[in-house]
Amino acid sequence: MIAELEIKNLTVSFDGFKAVDDLTFSVEHEELRVVIGPNGAGKTTLLDLICGKTRPTGGSIRFKGRELSRMQENSIVRQGVGRKFQTPSVYPKLTVFENLEISFPRGRGVWGSLFFKQSEDVRERIREVARDTYLSDHLHTSAEHLSHGQKQWLEIGMVLIADPKLMLLDEPVAGMSVRERQQTADLLQRICRGRSVVVIEHDMNFVKQIAHKVTVMHQGKMLVEGSMDEIQANEKVREVYLGH
């Protein structure tokens, strides 16, 4: 199979500190990859690099054969890369419905958004995504009144409604109850049909549930890559991370 996302020799340094250091890895179509690693391993920076929030100092990021590392953030999104941030960033003053409407991938240009019409298919799609993310009952609630877990879902929904081909999720279950975690795991299983997903997560039980393959990062470099069982058996990983 051809890899969807190909990262080669990716490096970024902040005043000499290499947050990501000569990283090479790839994600395949319909794969759900989990990236783990201790704090400061460069996981979030990696996602920032893929979605264009941070510019790499060297190396390449190719998605479906296109180089992303020089594109504007919004063009990267239009290539089909969606990003959910570590702290849920939704529009607090808007309702769930409006949050999803803004994220709907039509009318993204100046004129498009000025003359955007909320037709039945848009509303239908919004309701569908809300159903998927367990938010049907809250469509007209202001996002600021949602619980932390619901905000996480809403942000996943906002990424999902654009139907991205690659989803980047930064700690999607942080602050969730056990039951919510289970629901999120189900959601992720459904999501990764037809697209690739990269998840950053700390909760090992959750990782075990969802991961197809796990990448362990340490000090900006890739330490090992493999199935969850392999990772847990690995000595080096124990040393830097699991063993604590």
Binding site: C51, Q72, N74, S89, P92, K93, R108, S113
Partner: peptide, 19 residues
């Protein structure tokens, strides 16, 4: 609505695919 959203948090708008 995007304007207001932008005023309150630019990054999310950017990562919803808007310039």
């Amino acid at each position: 609505r995007i304007l207001v959203a932008m005023r309150d948090g630019e990054d999310r708008v950017r990562f919803s695919g808007y310039s």
